[in-house]
Simulated assay, not measured.
Amino acid sequence: MMVMTNRINKKERKKHIMNAALGIFSEKGFQNATISEISKAAGVSDATVYEYFGTKEKLLFSIPEQISDENTEDLQRVLPYIKGVEGKLRAFLIMFMRLYETNPHYSNLVLLQLMSSREFRNTAAHAAIRKSAHMLLDCIKQGIDEGTFRKDADPYLIRSMLMGTVEHLFIHWHMQGMPKRENPIQDYLDPFLEIVLDGIRAKTRTNTITLNVKMEDGEVVKSIFIEPSPLIKEAAE
């Protein structure tokens, strides 16, 4: 029982340190943040921070890895209960937007500080973020395979459009100083998603005929396609 309690306490303490570090990294940037500031905010010693994470850099990268893993697990639990690929796409974007908006320290850290770092792209943290991006890609491919989306649609381009727009909205929000909004940023989701879906949905074919007709031939065409011929009238009678 004591061993289990110690494990829980260690897990909670580690998460507490990460939460404190997230706020400081977001506000001051990685270079200006110090382990002493983080340990003070977390209510632990510098030695405890080093014991759990080893270096300031490892502490930095552990934050998006942990949060991304949790977000992916939430997606994996929810998606099986959502019907249709369009509903699943909406669920993906809602969860990303909700994460970015309700945890501005996280979206600041990832979108403004880490995504432009080449070093970050070689970490387990980046792999954790990419995991959910791969899930989104698989969902789009499923829509193409089952005929919901056009066969000529590029799944990678669609994913870039969806995630790129979401990221742009939140980068712009942060650059403005995160002003309070009358409506949440999530309100942009449905109009934007409908524009994208309208462009990639498989179109139902209809049998149509296109004719180039001279003005003087208009009455003839009308009699053929609109007004029934005498033979048809006679047969009907």
Rank of each mutant, 00 (worst) to 15 (best):
E146I: 10
L93G: 02
R121K: 15
T148F: 10
S68M: 09
F120T: 02
M97T: 07
K180Q: 13
Y100W: 07
L109V: 07
Y156F: 02
E101R: 06
M135Y: 15
K151T: 14
Q66M: 05
N122I: 08
V85K: 01
L89D: 03
Y50H: 04
K180H: 12
P179D: 01
D152Y: 11
M175D: 09
Y156K: 11
Y100I: 01
L75T: 14
D152Q: 15
L137Y: 15
L59M: 01
L60D: 07
A133E: 15
R181K: 05
D187F: 11
A133T: 13
D69S: 14
E70W: 00
R77M: 08
R181A: 11
E51M: 07
A153I: 02
A153R: 09
Q176M: 11
H168Q: 13
G147K: 12
E101Y: 03
P104S: 06
D154Y: 03
P104G: 00
D145E: 15
Y156W: 07
Y81S: 12
D69K: 15
M135I: 07
N183F: 13
T102D: 10
G147D: 10
R98L: 03
L157R: 02
S160D: 09
Y156A: 07
Q66D: 04
I158P: 06
F92H: 03
L157F: 12
V166D: 01
S62N: 02
I63E: 01
P64R: 10
G84L: 06
T148A: 13
A127D: 13
M161G: 00
L75Q: 15
Y81I: 10
F170R: 00
Q66R: 10
F149H: 00
R130P: 11
F170N: 01
E182L: 15
E57L: 12
W173A: 04
L137T: 08
N103E: 05
S107T: 08
L137K: 12
A128F: 10
M95C: 07
N108L: 12
I144D: 12
S117V: 08
L93H: 06
T148C: 14
L169H: 04
F96M: 07
R181G: 08
I185C: 00
E146G: 07
Y100L: 07
R90G: 09
S132H: 11
S160T: 10
R181T: 10
M97D: 02
I94E: 09
N103L: 01
K131G: 10
Y188C: 11
I185D: 05
V110P: 06
L111R: 08
L60F: 13
Q142G: 14
M161E: 04
F96R: 05
L93F: 06
E73L: 07
T55L: 01
